[in-house]
Every structure is written in structure tokens, then in C-alpha cells.
Simulated assay, not measured.
Amino acid sequence: KGYMTAGAYADGALGEVFLKLGKQGSTLAGVMDAFSIAVSIGLQYGVPLETFVEKFTNLRFEPAGMTDDADIRMAQSMMDYIFRRLALDYLPFEQRSSMGLYTAAERAAALDNGGEYAPVAVADTPKAPVLAVVPAVASKPVAVKIEAAAPAMTIGSSSDLLESMGIKSDAPLCMTCGVKMRMSGACFVCEGCGNTSGCS
């Protein structure tokens, strides 16, 4: 478990990065602190973020694999994930596009546009709706019939839980997004992205 905190200048450019990983005092925590300081000093002395992203993305070492970040489903290492995330958050679309880094929304829009990638505007937070004052109306009592519910199925393992949701416990992982697929007829389908296991 780790944390990344990034600080930006007033113009939105990345200025510093803090990485907290591992137990305080461990070798990993110390190395990540030192690395954070080195990257931050580089950024403050004019090294473009794009240079760091080019050098540290696709760097492969363990731990690697799936993440819970919708924009970056698979990472080849911690460095790969960290600099992909920084690129998505701080680099303009044109620079990210030249490196093949797109958000999930941009990839989804490209599917709709026939493979043409374009920047996707991030929606502003919606404003709270204005509520109208409605006069109170006298309510009438309503009869409610309560019946006992059927006993719930006992779930004793993760396999039981998956099968109660209609997902076979031995189902494969989706090759596109990494979500466990569910049975659909004779094939498997991914509920995350809609990919199938080969049948249509």
C-alpha cells in the first residue's frame, strides 16, 4: 500500500511529488523518499515531466499487474504506474497522445469515433439543483402487508459468492481490462468492457 501526493504550481504544472511506500524506516520507504526528492528537484530545475514519463513508463519489474485505477488497468511496475498517472494528470493531450497514454474516457470515445483519439472534456462538478417549496399535503394511512423473506443462501467461500452472482469461479480474466468474465451461453463475456472470449 502506498500513497502519491503531487504539488503543482499556480499554472497547473507539476512541481513536486511525494511517494510514501512501505513501512516507515524500511529500505523501500527510504528509496522512494529519495527518488521523490530527486524527481521534485528535477522538476523544479526545469526537467520537463515528459522526459521523466518517457524514461520511467514501461519500466518492468515486480510488483506488476492489475491496478484499481480505471485509467491504468495494468502496470508493469510501480514506476510505470506512477509516471503514467502523473502524465494523465499533468500533461496536455497532445504530449500524452504522442506517448500513447490515454484516459479511459478517451479510449472509450475512440471506440465510438472509429479509432480516432481526441481529448475528452472533463465535466465540471454539477451544481446543486434549486429546490422548489411544495406545500404540505395531509397524508392518509396506508395498510402494509409484511411477509417473511425466504432464507438467504449461505455463502461459505469466494467461489460460492462468485457463483451466487452468476460468475463461474473458474472463469478467465478479460484480456482487455482484467475483470473476471462471466458465462454467457457457451462463451464468457466481460461485464467491465463487453469483450468476449471469442464467441459472438
Score class of each variant (00 low, 15 high):
3 Y>P: 00
3 Y>F: 14
4 M>Q: 12
5 T>H: 12
5 T>D: 11
8 A>Y: 05
9 Y>A: 14
10 A>F: 13
13 A>F: 06
14 L>Q: 00
14 L>D: 00
20 K>D: 13
22 G>C: 12
25 G>L: 14
25 G>I: 10
32 M>I: 13
34 A>G: 13
34 A>M: 11
36 S>F: 04
36 S>L: 09
38 A>H: 06
44 Q>L: 15
45 Y>V: 06
48 P>I: 04
50 E>Y: 02
53 V>F: 03
57 T>P: 04
58 N>Q: 15
61 F>V: 09
62 E>W: 07
62 E>P: 00
63 P>Q: 07
63 P>N: 08
64 A>H: 03
65 G>D: 09
66 M>W: 15
67 T>W: 05
68 D>S: 13
70 A>S: 12
70 A>F: 04
72 I>A: 05
72 I>Q: 00
73 R>S: 13
73 R>K: 15
74 M>W: 15
75 A>M: 06
76 Q>E: 14
79 M>C: 10
82 I>D: 07
83 F>M: 09
84 R>S: 00
85 R>Y: 05
87 A>S: 11
92 P>A: 09
94 E>G: 06
95 Q>G: 03
97 S>M: 02
99 M>H: 03
99 M>C: 08
102 Y>P: 04
102 Y>M: 09
103 T>K: 07
107 R>H: 04
107 R>P: 10
108 A>G: 01
109 A>G: 00
110 A>F: 08
110 A>Q: 02
111 L>I: 07
112 D>V: 13
112 D>I: 15
114 G>M: 05
117 Y>M: 08
120 V>C: 06
120 V>T: 03
121 A>K: 04
121 A>L: 13
124 D>F: 07
126 P>N: 13
126 P>I: 15
128 A>H: 11
129 P>N: 09
132 A>V: 11
133 V>H: 08
133 V>P: 00
134 V>H: 10
135 P>Q: 15
137 V>T: 15
139 S>L: 14
139 S>I: 11
142 V>P: 01
144 V>R: 09
147 E>R: 11
154 T>E: 15
155 I>W: 04
162 L>M: 15
163 E>I: 06
168 K>C: 04
169 S>H: 10
170 D>G: 12
170 D>Q: 14
171 A>H: 10
175 M>I: 06
177 C>I: 14
179 V>N: 09
179 V>M: 12
179 V>S: 14
181 M>P: 03
181 M>Q: 00
182 R>D: 03
185 G>A: 04
185 G>V: 11
186 A>D: 11
188 F>P: 01
190 C>Y: 02
195 N>V: 04
197 S>M: 05
198 G>E: 05
200 S>C: 08
